[in-house]
């Protein structure tokens, strides 16, 4: 393999990794604090892409950026509803029931999307500002949009880190992830904190979906495809760990990108093998600090 090609694949892999991180960061924070393994996180990601498409095409003169913001807000509202109405009822129940309930969200959201948007694959044009490419050494064309995704991932990672470690809200989330009873003992409004965090997680999934829109065909199945990869990242990184999710995203993203290059027919299985190995050897995740 030529070195320039290696670098090119590395950057492509990194942009995929950062997209995964956007989605996985939301899930790991929700899972860490609320202790809900949210299967529907992939459906929220899918909704992010569909809403972006919808706002871009139904409102006159709307740019990609504004459509994305509107989409993210919409997904956040749906997340708020899911947390406030059904999930709130089952926090004390087993993981089994919680998983099955979030699976029922997938059925509902998928079919609702089919009803409103149809089953055809949709495509979102890359915003004009980023519709070019940079020539890398070895005459490889790197799309500007991929660089933009990497930048988005890094900015979001930094903001989440700031929010989690430098604000009062973030400290509460950390404390709650470690010990939930203590929070309510301290007089914190835990239900409100849960709602806020679930909205934040949904927003991140929606953002990932909106940004993925121009890269992939927007389809109803995209949520189910991504959610297992995202669960894999959350497990490999350690549930609730932002740093873990970041490193695991890069690991999974690059593994998939290079897997397709070297073993095209079996690359699909790499993520599952990684999850199996991690669960069997270090089920608490590779980077959990606790």
């Amino acid at each position: 393999m030529e070195f320039s090609y290696f670098i090119y694949q590395l950057i492509i892999g990194l942009s995929y990794s950062m997209l995964l991180f956007l989605i996985a960061s939301g899930l790991t924070i929700i899972f860490g604090l609320l202790n809900i393994p949210n299967f529907a996180h992939g459906a929220l990601y899918m909704l992010g892409a569909y809403f972006t498409y919808f706002f871009l095409h139904s409102l006159p003169g709307v740019s990609f950026g504004i459509a994305l913001v509107l989409a993210v807000v919409s997904v956040g509202l749906i997340g708020a509803f899911l947390e406030y109405v059904p999930l709130r009822k089952i926090y004390e129940r087993s993981h089994a029931l919680q998983l099955l309930m979030t699976f029922s969200f997938i059925l509902i959201l998928d079919d609702a999307t089919k009803y409103f948007a149809g089953t055809d694959f949709l495509s979102i044009a890359i915003p004009k500002l980023m519709d070019g490419s940079i020539t890398l050494p070895g005459d490889r064309e790197m799309p500007v949009y991929s660089i933009f995704i990497i930048a988005c991932g890094l900015v979001v990672a930094y903001l989440l880190w700031l929010g989690l470690y430098k604000t009062r809200l973030g400290k509460l989330v950390q404390a709650g992830t470690a010990n939930k009873e203590m929070l309510s003992a301290l007089g914190i409004n835990v239900p409100r904190l849960f709602t806020l965090v679930f909205i934040l997680g949904s927003v991140l999934a929606g953002l990932g979906g909106g940004l993925a829109g121009p890269l992939k065909a927007v389809s109803v199945g995209m949520g189910e495809t991504v959610i297992i990869t995202i669960f894999a990242i959350v497990i490999v990184g350690g549930v609730g760990s932002l740093k873990g999710a970041f490193i695991a995203s890069i690991l999974v993203g690059e593994l998939n990108t290079f897997g397709v290059v070297f073993f095209p027919s079996f690359a699909m299985a790499f993520t599952y093998i990684l999850v199996i190995v991690v669960l069997l050897t270090k089920p608490e995740g590779l980077f959990r600090t606790k």
């Binding site: 998983l99 079996f266 089920p283």
Partner: peptide, 28 residues
Amino acid sequence: LFCMRLRGFYFAILTLAFSQIFFVVVYK
């Protein structure tokens, strides 16, 4: 034999990952 050491959510995901390997083999 592999899955017996895990519980709850982790057991669910481990069984899911094994079944997805079957899926990939059949698919590919």
